[in-house]
Structures are given as structure tokens and as C-alpha cells.
Design a protein around this nucleic acid. Structure first.
Ligand code: SF4
Ligand code: SF4
Lengths: 135, 135
DNA sequence: CCTAATAAGATATAAATTGTCTTTTTAGGG
DNA sequence: CCCTAAAAAGACAATTTATATCTTATTAGG
């Protein structure tokens, strides 16, 4: 239960890498992928998603690559994870109570909401700046 | 991310149902399954697991069925969930840091440990007695 | 023994995960 | 105006996980 996908882990590796570099320069996807040990084609897909959401900016053609879309201190881990996986929902009734006939009377339902809140709270408390490894 | 499986949800439904009934009587699997709206064969598998772990007791043959293995106030939701799904691990490096070469230097790693702690704390704080619907 | 019930194990289907491959688009430089 | 470098987009594929079901065995009571 509750296991992060590779995709999210890779995504975090990639964007944290960017956050640890000078933010106004572009970096080759292939270089990023190599540095964080992620299959390049997979990371490409992830960064395409991020690009649409503004988490990163992309530049095509010669001299192209990726850079962070915003300052590292303004991007939380929560935002990154939810950008990849969608909302954090411990159980489907948290997102859509109508999915389960029992949600009205279910005593477990509120527990999942609390779990969601706690997880979100932890992840929202960490920014890319916090995570960036400065060397 | 972080979504509970049906199996766990079904498991909880089933065992919470038992917790809401007089604890020293046996109940037919088919009745439990019908009451909580779970495929009977699936719930059977789950309860077989639970039985091995002592969460429930099973009785075969005529007049057989299931009852709770311990008092409802001594069984936490955490225990039930982990009995079905195994340990709660937000990321595989939490269980086995050696799985990931980067765990030594990774700044994200400690965050997943905190997430794990928070989730476990919430679930450990709820017992089957709390969840049992009395009517 | 006959019947009721769970136990155990094999099997099946569908969905999600974890990628890869090919083609297209964009941009820079000579 | 090409040529090359790079990301974008979309199709495709393998593997694993989830979600069951089915069959046969075992146990217990009457
Ligand atoms: S049974 Fe309760 S916890 Fe499970 S899905 Fe329905 S409302 Fe949510
Ligand atoms: S990169 Fe960090 S968070 Fe991801 S698996 Fe490795 S140690 Fe864990």
C-alpha cells in the first residue's frame, strides 16, 4: 500500500537536480537523465508533462533543454508528486465519496481523509530548495 | 499514488463488521460478505490470511464460520492494513535503502520516512472498537 | 457417512506500471 | 536555405499487480 511509482521517484530526482543548479541555464535531458540515473526516454515523458504545467520550461532545437519553471523555494514536493500522479488519495472514496455506497455511514472514511491531510502536510512542507543538494 | 487496494478496503469492511457484532459468536463468511458487499470468494482469501495471523479465528465444518481473534479495542487499523498489504512504505528505499544507490546522499529519502511515520501514527490511533458501528 | 463449511492452490482477466520506438516539430548555425 | 540538434507527441510492448473465480481438499457435526 501507498507505494510511490518509479515515475514519481524519477520525476523528483530530475527536478531536484535542476533545483540544485543555476536556475537560469538550460540543461540537456540526456545529461539530467544520466546524472540522476533514469531512463532518458522515460524522463523525457515526465518532463513533457511538467512543461505543460509550468514546473519546468523547455526549449527545442540546438542549444535547447530544460530549466526550472519557477524558483526552487516556490515549488513543493507535494506539487511535484501530484503533478505526476494526480491527487494523493489513500482510498478512492476520498476523491469521490459517491464511488462507494457506504461512504455516508462508513466510519473508516474519515480516517482516510486524515491520512490524506497528514501526507499532504508533510509533502507541502518541503520545497525543492530544501531538497537541492548544494556542493 | 498511495491508493489503497480493493483487497484492503474489503478486508477492513469485513473485520470491522465482525467487530460490531458480539465477539464470541461465529459468523458465516457468506453472510459477512453479503453484509459488507464484497465478493465472497475474495473475502474468503483475505480471512484465510487473517486467520493465520490470529486476527480472526476460523471454524470449519457445520456450524463453522469466523470470529474476531482478539478484542476489538486491541486491534488497530494499522495492523489490519499491514496484515493485508505488508508494511506501509511510501517508497521502496524506506523498506530497503540498499535498493537505491542514492539513499546515502538522497535528501528526499528522509521525507518518505516521515510520511511513513505520519501514516502509521494515524492508523495506529484507530482501533476496531472505534470503527465498529453499534446499532 | 453425509452435509456444511473453511483451506489451499490453480487459473483467468483486466489494469497499471515501466518503459521503448518512430515520427514530427522547432530552433540555431553555416 | 539546408543541416543538425534537440524536445514533443503518439503508438506500441513487456512485465507486474490487482481482482477476482474455480476446483479440490480438509475438517467437523449430526
Ligand atoms: S467502505 Fe468506507 S473506507 Fe471503504 S471505500 Fe467505502 S466509504 Fe471509503
Ligand atoms: S532517489 Fe532517494 S527517495 Fe528515491 S528511492 Fe533513492 S533514496 Fe529513495
Amino acid at each position: 500500500m501507498m507505494e510511490l511509482t518509479r515515475k514519481s521517484d524519477y520525476a523528483i530526482r530530475g527536478i531536484v537536480y535542476l533545483a540544485g543548479k543555476p536556475v537560469d541555464k538550460v540543461y540537456l535531458l540526456s545529461d539530467i537523465a544520466a546524472a540522476v540515473d533514469v531512463p532518458p526516454t522515460f524522463l523525457a515523458k515526465i518532463f513533457q508533462q511538467f512543461s505543460k504545467m509550468g514546473l519546468v520550461k523547455s526549449f527545442r532545437g540546438t542549444g535547447g533543454g530544460f530549466m526550472l519553471g519557477r524558483l526552487p523555494e516556490t515549488i513543493t514536493l507535494l506539487e511535484v508528486v501530484e503533478a505526476v500522479e494526480g491527487p494523493i488519495i489513500p482510498n478512492r472514496c476520498v476523491a469521490t465519496p459517491s464511488d462507494c455506497d457506504r461512504s455516508g455511514i462508513c466510519t473508516v472514511h474519515p480516517v482516510w481523509i486524515r491520512v490524506q491531510e497528514e501526507v499532504r502536510r508533510v509533502l507541502a512542507g518541503v520545497t525543492l530548495k530544501d531538497l537541492a543538494t548544494k556542493e
